[in-house]
C-alpha cells in the first residue's frame, strides 16, 4: 500500500511525538556539555599557567570525560515515553521507527552537541587562545613529555574513538528497546557495563603492547633513549587501534542489527 512506504512525514511525526523528551534532553545535555567545556577550559588555562603543578590536568580530563558521556545520552529519549503500548501501536512502520532512532542518536543529537561545543569554542576563542581546549592540551602534553608525538596517536585513534562511542550508544539503544521495564535504569547499567568492557579491552591491549615492546626489560636495563622508547611505546599502542576499531565496528553492527530486529518485532 502506498501509505505504508517509508514516509518522511511520519518520521517527522515521530520527532514531533518525542519532541517533549527531545527538548528536555537537549536542555539537560546542552547545559552539562557547556559545563564540561567550561571545566576543560578552566583546566587548560590553569594547566598552562601552572605547568605541571596542581590537579588542573585532571579537571580538564574530567570535563572531557563528561562531554563524552553526554553523547551517550541520545537513546534515553526513548524511555522518557514510558507507555510501551502507546508506542507499539503508534501508526508508523518499524522501518520509520528505526530511521527515527538511528538518525537521532547518530546524526541529529551529535550534530547538536557539536554545534554547541564548537559554538562555545568559537565564542571563547574571541577572548582566549586556550579556547581550542583539546589542541592546546595536546600541545601542552607534548611539551611536558619533551616533544613526544601524542598528536599523531590521538589522530590515529579518532576513528576508533568514534566507532567506540557509536557502539556504546548503539548498545544503550539495544538495551532500551529490549527490556520491558526499568528501561532508563537498565540503559544506564548497559552503558556502564559497556564502558567497563571497553576499559578492560584497553587494559588488555595495554598489557599486550607492554609485553610485546619488552617495556619491563628495557626499563629494568635503563633504556638508552627514554624519549625514543616512550615514542616507540606510543606507536605500538597506535598500532593496536585498528584491531580495537574493528572490534568496536563489529559491536556497532551487531547492536544495530539486534536493535532493528527488536523494533521490527515489538515496534518499541
Amino acid at each position: 500500500m502506498e501509505n505504508n512506504k517509508i514516509s518522511i512525514h511520519r518520521i517527522g511525526l515521530l520527532y514531533k511525538f518525542y519532541s517533549p523528551a527531545i527538548r528536555l534532553l537537549l536542555i539537560i545535555s546542552g547545559t552539562v556539555l557547556l559545563g564540561a567545556y567550561a571545566l576543560c577550559l578552566y583546566g587548560v588555562v590553569m594547566t598552562r599557567q601552572y605547568f605541571n603543578d596542581g590537579p588542573f590536568f585532571l579537571i580538564y580530563s574530567m570535563g572531557a570525560g563528561i562531554a563524552g558521556w553526554v553523547y551517550m545520552a541520545g537513546p534515553f529519549i526513548l524511555p522518557m515515553v514510558s507507555n510501551r503500548a502507546l508506542i507499539t501501536t503508534l501508526p508508523a512502520s518499524w522501518s520509520e521507527k528505526c530511521i527515527f532512532i538511528f538518525s537521532w542518536i547518530f546524526v541529529v543529537y551529535p550534530l547538536y552537541l557539536a554545534v554547541l561545543w564548537y559554538g562555545a569554542t568559537g565564542i571563547c576563542s574571541l577572548f582566549t587562545d586556550a579556547a581550542f581546549v583539546n589542541d592546546v592540551m595536546m600541545t601542552h602534553v607534548a611539551e611536558m613529555t619533551g616533544g613526544l608525538d601524542v598528536r599523531t596517536m590521538a589522530q590515529s585513534s579518532q576513528t576508533f574513538n568514534v566507532l567506540n562511542n557509536m557502539s556504546m550508544v548503539a548498545l544503550a539503544a539495544l538495551v532500551i528497546v529490549s527490556v520491558r521495564r526499568n528501561r532508563f535504569i537498565l540503559g544506564v547499567v548497559g552503558l556502564i557495563v559497556c564502558s567497563f568492557v571497553a576499559w578492560l579491552i584497553g587494559m588488555v591491549v595495554g598489557i599486550v603492547v607492554v609485553v610485546k615492546s619488552q617495556f619491563i626489560e628495557q626499563a629494568a636495563a635503563g633504556a638508552a633513549d627514554p624519549e625514543a622508547f616512550a615514542q616507540e611505546l606510543l606507536n605500538e599502542i597506535a598500532g593496536a587501534f585498528p584491531y580495537v576499531g574493528i572490534f568496536s565496528g563489529l559491536l556497532l553492527i551487531v547492536c544495530i542489527v539486534l536493535t532493528i530486529r527488536k523494533i521490527r518485532i515489538r515496534q518499541c
Partner: peptide, 25 residues
C-alpha cells in the same frame, strides 16, 4: 502494524496513560 491499519485503530486500555502534560499536547 502497518501505518495504514494502525491509524484506523485506537485502543484505550484501562491502564492507558498519556506521556504528555495535557490532553491538547
Amino acid at each position: 502494524r502497518l501505518p495504514s491499519t494502525m491509524s484506523d485503530i485506537f485502543y484505550l486500555s484501562d491502564s492507558w496513560q498519556s506521556p504528555f502534560k495535557d490532553i491538547y499536547a
